[in-house]
Amino acid sequence: MTSIIAPTVIQSVGITPLEVALFVFILITAVLTALFRDVLAAIVIFAAYSLGLAVVYTFYRAPDVGLTEAAIGAGVTTVFLLLTIAKTTRPPTDELFEPINWPAVAVCGLFALVVGSTLTAFPAVGDPNSPILTNPEVTGYYLENAYDETGAKNAVTSVLAAYRGFDTFGEAVVVFAAGIASLLVLGREVFTA
């Protein structure tokens, strides 16, 4: 007796109703973000888009990416965009939607088609026979030696923080510099308690 969408099946086969609903939600919010004439409305809808995307990441068992998307996409970006329209002007409008620029839509559609044509080359989600999982020299090495060499229990963490530690350090420097620059531009200390 098998159920329609048992958790074990989900990891290997196709698309579940939940994913369909999530993708519809994300697609609608993404298109609306581009279409809204009023910037404040666009920011609000963009936050909703970010929330939906974070659920998708979480569903695919990428909790760190999901957390980052929720914190940066829905939290910090919203506040920064609001600060931006607070420091600039927000043109009042009567229209709900932006007039659609059809040539731009055509170019974007073409780009999406070209990128989408590579989709068939991907292995199925969670496919245990995909090349990246069966590769003994790279994946196998990390899975076997990551704990002994770094002491981190999570293999992804060990790669991020140990094997490519300098790269992550550089990223942290970039984020730190961006934060300092934002504070300078805003001209005040935002993070004082």
């Binding site: 609000v44 936050a47 909790p63 829905a74 919203t78 506040v79 609001l82 607070a86 420091k87 935002v190």
Partner: peptide, 30 residues
Amino acid sequence: FLDIALVYALLNFLMSIAISKFTVERGGVI
């Protein structure tokens, strides 16, 4: 998943507060 749900609940609150403050007192986001 519950950890992420908690972060969500907090962020959701923060976002609403930020947008509401922006609407009431223009420019006072934080």
